Amino acid sequence: MDEAKVRSYRVLVIDDVLGVRESIRIALQDAGFHAVAAENGQRALDLLAGGGFDAVVTDIWMPEIDGLSLIKRLRNEQSGLRVFAMTGGGPRMTIETATALAEIWGAERVFLKPFDETLLITALKEARS
């Protein structure tokens, strides 16, 4: 993929843990993406309402609006948006169940934390192609 296409690709990273959110945002920016971060699903919806994003990378377990609900809503409201999920497990269901639901509801891929950020970068570059 050419550098100009990567740089113009806008990705919203959503995670309630600051360190995770910023680590991913910085890795994406270092790879040439335009990355913006949000701390929860509600803030993500506010940012997405302005348009201009090509992809979302969301944690599954967050306060206010969890990632599963967010994925389901995005599939109904913004069908062209590429959606990726990530999880380290959560309080309400197993990782396997959360992963299956994320994929059923529209996540293109689910990354299990901790994961190598180059895998996400590769997936985003393939989604852009």
Rank of each mutant, 00 (worst) to 15 (best):
I26P: 05
A35C: 10
Q29Y: 02
A44S: 10
Q78V: 08
L81F: 07
L47N: 02
S23N: 12
E77L: 02
G52W: 04
F84W: 00
L120K: 06
R128D: 08
D2N: 15
E39G: 10
D16K: 08
G90E: 11
W61S: 12
G32K: 05
G67L: 05
P114D: 12
G32R: 10
D46R: 13
S79L: 07
A102L: 08
L74A: 01
A102R: 05
N40Q: 10
P114V: 04
R21P: 09
V6L: 07
E39Q: 05
A4P: 07
R10I: 09
G89C: 11
A49R: 14
V17H: 08
E77T: 13
E103M: 13
R25I: 08
N76R: 14
Q78N: 07
V36F: 05
I121Y: 09
E64I: 13
T87M: 01
A4L: 13
D30K: 14
E77W: 02
V57G: 03
D30F: 02
I104G: 04
F33N: 03
M93T: 03
R7D: 08
A38G: 12
F111T: 09
W105E: 15
S129G: 15
G19E: 13
M1Y: 03
G89K: 01
G90V: 09
D15E: 11
L120V: 06
M93G: 05
E103H: 08
V83A: 00
G80C: 01
G106H: 00
T94G: 15
F115D: 05
F115H: 11
G89P: 10
Q78A: 14
L68C: 04
R109N: 11
K113C: 09
M1L: 10
D15M: 04
F115Y: 15
E39D: 12
G52K: 01
L18M: 10
I121C: 00
Q78I: 06
G67H: 03
H34F: 09
E77D: 10
A127V: 00
A107M: 04
M93W: 01
L112R: 11
L70Y: 10
N76E: 15
G89S: 11
A102G: 02
A37R: 08
G52H: 02
A127Y: 07
I24D: 06
L48K: 03
S23Y: 02
I26D: 12
D46F: 10
L124N: 02
D66E: 11
L101D: 00
T58I: 11
D2M: 11
E108S: 11
L120Q: 02
